[in-house]
Amino acid sequence: MTMADDDMELENLFAQARKDRSELPDDLAVRIQTDAETTRLGRLVKHARPERSHWSRILDNIGGWQGFSGLAAASVTGVFIGFFAPAVLPDTAGLFGATDGSVLAADLGFDTSFLESTE
């Protein structure tokens, strides 16, 4: 066979391959359609679901209404104690001026006698 014959043979094989181009098998077509339908319905459901508001998502993140009410109660208590501190609580604000560590420890109710003995 000459090179021209080889080329002709190859072109014939290509032509045959184009003619015999495979059809989509029926079961594969069904699988593809099922995938398409599943994707389409999934998208429709996603769009149909109402969008949650920004505040709803924040509320979920802190444990819902129960979490929010606990957080609110703790905050109010903190503010109250800040303004109307009971006498039994140490004056922590006054401690910031202290230069001696023993004062801080003593004010918090610890035994500081060992600190005094070393001085």
Binding site: R21, S22, L24, I32, Q33, A36
Partner: peptide, 14 residues
Amino acid sequence: ARILTDRLGPRCYS
């Protein structure tokens, strides 16, 4: 999707 499957599926498979 049905038309796209008929049109593009066979090319992809081939």
